[in-house]
Write a protein that binds this DNA or RNA. Structure first.
Lengths: 147, 147
DNA sequence: CCAACTGGTTCAATCATGGAACCATGGGAG
DNA sequence: CTCCCATGGTTCCATGATTGAACCAGTTGG
């Protein structure tokens, strides 16, 4: 049977996974946030097969996360740019990056972290806060239906 | 060929995806954060095949995100509980939930949102901030190697 | 003691993924 | 203008992953 579609789920997490829950999409968005726009850039950065990359880029365009526009360098080629919706995934990637940094050992190669462009200092850890500003842990929230 | 392993990547986002980047793992963690602990609860909630669920639960245990402990109801069965590492994924799920709520249309069914347990008011939107507290957008950060 | 429930395992079929080969355009050098 | 390489794909096949169904051993409730 085909992979289950979660697009009809009431849960926004499930709907998000339905859109970017596969192996490559978030990595493409990550690279796009770093400024990549061209097919060949993604291909080289990710080491993914062209057919898969084609498929994923098309899906991201269809979902409104990327859009095709004429190349900025004046050539006849086109490039993939993040939409506002796509840039919204920034926070998701920051969350994943922070979790990975703390919880998944990085091998010999070298570690990497995110700093702000201006002062080159590490970004603060994300915090979940209540409407009144209180810090919230995993057990201090609940999910409710909106009617 | 086997799905590419990203466990050796310097990028913490890639390493995170290597651990929880598949279709079901994050949904299992989501349910675990809502208090689910038993095999049959996950099975019913997710509608996933038992063999896949078995596989995923085992993987999450091996990764240290879940751990097996004796059932709290005194029966001879065991249950899956989140570890501290697993609870750390809370922020990732909040980020995905907020993005999905704003960017992926929810169908007829009904919408859902996260509120704090105490006052039942919606949780604040996550913010990426610099060390000095400035709000940072996607273009105002960069990735650097730590030596 | 028997039936149903829990938590799996095994199986065949189908779907997705990866690598390689191929190809139509664009662009740059001469 | 022409040749040749780079870009951005498409197609094909082999392999891996996912699925639902069937089956099964140990637990529990009645």
């Amino acid at each position: 049977m085909r992979r289950k579609s979660l697009s009809g789920a009431a849960c926004p997490i499930a709907r998000t996974l339905d859109v970017i829950g596969d192996w490559w999409s978030l990595l493409i968005v990550r690279d796009a946030l770093r400024g990549m726009r061209r097919f060949s850039e993604f291909e080289k950065s990710l080491g993914v097969s062209k057919n898969i990359l084609t498929q994923r880029l098309r899906s991201l365009v269809k979902q409104g996360i990327l859009e095709l526009s004429p190349a900025s360098d004046g050539s006849a080629y086109r490039e993939y740019r993040l939409t506002t919706k796509g840039r919204g995934l920034f926070k998701v990637l920051v969350a994943m990056g922070q979790w990975g940094q703390e919880n998944v050992a990085s091998p010999a190669g070298g570690r990497v972290t995110m700093v702000d462009l201006e002062h080159h200092k590490p970004v603060r850890k994300l915090e979940v806060r209540a409407a009144d500003g209180r810090l919230l842990g995993p057990g201090e929230t609940m999910i409710v239906r909106i009617d």
